[in-house]
């Protein structure tokens, strides 16, 4: 009862704030929370002639296809590994670029480089896969033409699994760095000049200013990016893998992730129950991870925690 009263009191005192939040809450209720009933699909046998809640409850049967292949562990590890690399290198790269760009003095160069770095973001993976094929294919690819020109032996990149680990990470960074750099750039812009002036007076040189002022001030932005990335650590970047690797089973040990596996498995049947089951597995994984990390962050500094 007491709890209820505080809630009511809060509504009264901060009614304007509640009002300002209402459109957002409404949005998420409609767009996200209502459709969440669909999670139940994961536990039923889908049937066109029955509605969702009339369908037969089958427990965890829809999950079976995930571990049946015996490669769930590998898929999970691949997915985690790639995402970890994306998160780590993506953020380090974006921060480095943002710091460097923000210190550029030549106006035209600064503007031009930012715009150009954004270009890859617009290139779909379908298009990218065509370019990549043109660079690496064995007979007439750009790379082998070059090697042959130098009198060297051609290489068969599409039959060499390990090469694709760095390649995939590289193309991920290539496509997304411009985007995430903007976030850090905006954050750097928000840092008060007074800090830098004071540091200058204290005799700090530029590396020290970056190290002791800029980087710490970007921490909270980094935490946001990190927590959102962790939440979807079992998902994502389907197009990147699917377009670059496609049907090339030779490379699967090094490049197969959960999403591509699920896609191939269900492409023909399109079973809603099994697709939902895979989604639930991914969600639970992300959820657990985020709860742990958020709790740790909250212990260290409450301001940085997401919730």
């Amino acid at each position: 009862m007491i709890k209820r009263n505080t809630f009511l009191r809060e509504i009264v005192t901060n009614r304007m704030l509640f009002l300002m939040l209402i459109p957002t809450l409404l949005f998420f209720v409609i767009n996200n929370y209502l459709p969440m009933v669909g999670i139940y699909y994961a536990f039923t046998r889908f049937d066109f002639s029955k509605s969702l809640f009339d369908s037969d409850f089958v427990g965890f049967e829809n999950f079976e296809f995930l571990w049946r292949s015996g490669i769930l562990t590998r898929l999970t590890l691949n997915t985690l590994g790639y995402n970890a690399a994306f998160i780590l290198l993506g953020n380090v790269g974006a921060i480095a670029l943002a710091v460097l760009v923000s210190e550029l003095k030549l106006k035209w160069f600064k503007k031009l480089s930012q715009s150009v770095m954004f270009l890859p973001y617009f290139i779909s993976f379908v298009i990218l896969s065509v370019i990549v094929y043109n660079i690496f294919n064995y007979e007439s690819g750009f790379l082998n033409t070059l090697l042959k020109g130098w009198g060297l032996n051609p290489v068969d990149v599409y039959s060499t699994p390990w090469v694709w680990v760095p390649l995939i990470i590289f193309f991920y960074l290539w496509k997304n760095l411009g985007y995430s750099m903007v976030i850090y750039l905006a954050a750097i812009t928000g840092i008060s000049d007074e800090y830098y002036e004071a540091a200058k007076i204290d005799g700090a040189h530029i590396f020290q200013r970056v190290r002791y002022i800029t980087i710490p001030m970007l921490k909270s932005t980094f935490v946001v990016l990190l927590l959102f990335a962790l939440g979807s650590i079992m998902k994502g970047q389907f197009d990147l893998f699917y377009q670059l690797i496609g049907n090339n089973g030779m490379l699967y040990n090094a490049t197969d992730i959960l999403d591509t596996y699920v896609y191939r498995s269900l492409k023909v049947t399109f079973d809603i129950g099994m697709a939902s089951a895979a989604g639930v597995y991914q969600s639970l994984f992300g959820f657990a991870l985020v709860m742990i990390v958020n709790t740790i962050i909250r212990k260290i500094n409450e301001d940085y925690a997401l919730f």
Binding site: S124, K235, Q243, Y261, F270
Partner: peptide, 16 residues
């Protein structure tokens, strides 16, 4: 919400 539902329903690139 839609992108959350695993690969089969993911935004599969149409061209392929």
């Amino acid at each position: 919400a839609l992108t959350l539902s695993a690969g089969a329903l993911a935004l599969v690139t149409v061209l392929s």
